[in-house]
């Protein structure tokens, strides 16, 4: 059997799974909606992958990233758990080792990663503001009754993008409504929204960063051609969107799992059929002190595997 390396990126909106061959070539990818159920989504995704390629591929290493990375690492038996920033940087430089700026916009967060000579030298994530992330676009698309997939192409049809306030998602929305009421057409408003998001991103996440080409734009939002164009115009430089832009985090951590499992000598991967295992989490409020931490307990079948959420560490298994 051929060897494969599994990467799982569980974010707030989407759950992405990829399997790479030992040379880093993508064999299969799954892009699923998390829908607030990370465990089931990963179980389902792995099952699908197992059905499709489980016969010919043996998983030799597995890694997790994304906001649910610790939880999911227990479920799949990951060899490495990495933060999203490192994962995205590794993935981008595997495609273009000259890349110097990575723009990543996901469901609820956005980041910029600055690389020089193949090494991350600076990065930033959005702080207290989620304007300009995928969730906001999703919401506006459904408000305009436009499928999110077509959002970008509408923007490309615009002749005169309308100026929309991009400081804050709430203001942007009321500004959009206002512009609609005044009679501007939808294409121009959507294009204006794309430009507002880019401005917001640059002033918030990109503030003070030295942005040099090549620029790579990845994350689910890179599907939006209107936004890609808006970035090109704003930066006045080419913006490259990699083929598998939506699953770059998963690709990055799959690449890292290759080294991690080699170092370990074996993989901890539990197999594709973890659907048969019952994973359960329960939580309780610790009464030990006035912090009242919400402690989560994680069970595989009936065995307690881990606890987290306590600040003092007294519940560690």
């Amino acid at each position: 059997m051929k060897k494969g390396y599994l990467g799982v990126d569980v974010g707030s909106v989407s759950t992405n799974l990829v399997v790479l061959d030992p040379d880093g070539k993508l064999l299969i990818k799954k892009y699923l909606r998390t829908n607030g159920k990370p465990i089931q989504t990963v179980q389902e995704g792995l099952y699908q992958i197992g059905q499709e390629i489980g016969e010919e591929i043996e998983i030799a290493g597995a890694g997790t990233t994304g906001s649910a990375r610790y939880l999911i690492s227990l479920i799949i038996g990951a060899d490495i758990v990495k933060n999203e920033i490192t994962a995205h940087a590794i993935a981008a430089s595997s495609i273009d080792n000259e890349v110097r700026t990575i723009v990543e916009i996901g469901g609820q967060d956005s980041k910029i990663i600055i690389m020089r000579d193949g090494v991350v030298t600076d990065f930033a994530m959005n702080t207290v503001c989620a304007a300009g992330t995928g969730s906001f676009l999703d919401q506006q698309a459904s408000r305009l009754l436009i499928p999110i997939e077509d959002f970008g192409s509408y923007a490309l049809k615009a002749k005169n993008p309308v100026r929309i306030a991009g400081r804050c998602a709430v203001f942007a929305e009321s500004d959009m409504i206002h512009k609609q009421q005044l009679g501007y057409n939808t294409e121009d408003i959507i294009a204006g929204l794309c430009e507002a998001l880019v401005r917001n991103y640059m002033n918030n996440v990109g503030k003070g960063k030295e942005i040099l080409p090549p620029v790579m734009f990845q994350g689910g939002v890179a599907a939006n051609q209107g936004l890609v164009e808006a970035f090109r115009r704003y930066l006045d430089m080419p913006v490259e969107v990699p083929e598998h832009y939506g699953v770059m985090g998963a690709i990055g951590v799959a690449l890292m799992s290759r080294d991690a499992s080699r170092r370990k000598g074996a993989t901890g991967f539990k197999g594709f059929n973890i659907q048969e295992i019952s994973f359960k989490t329960t939580s309780f409020e610790c009464k030990g002190c006035s912090n009242a931490c919400e402690v989560v307990q994680f069970y595989e079948n009936s065995e307690l595997l881990a606890r987290w959420g306590d600040r003092c560490g007294k519940w560690e298994v």
Binding site: S67, K82, N83, E84, I85, T86, V119, V120, T121, D122, F123, M125, T127, V128
Partner: peptide
């Protein structure tokens, strides 16, 4: 390398952890 971490009453530990981990990775790779 410089990292700024902003705290407020809504700060999640997860966000700080992600940034700190990425910062440490960055320093180690460098």
């Amino acid at each position: 390398p410089y990292l700024s971490i902003t705290i407020d009453e809504h700060t999640g530990e997860a966000g700080i952890r992600t940034r700190v981990e990425a910062f440490i990775d960055m320093l180690n790779y460098r």
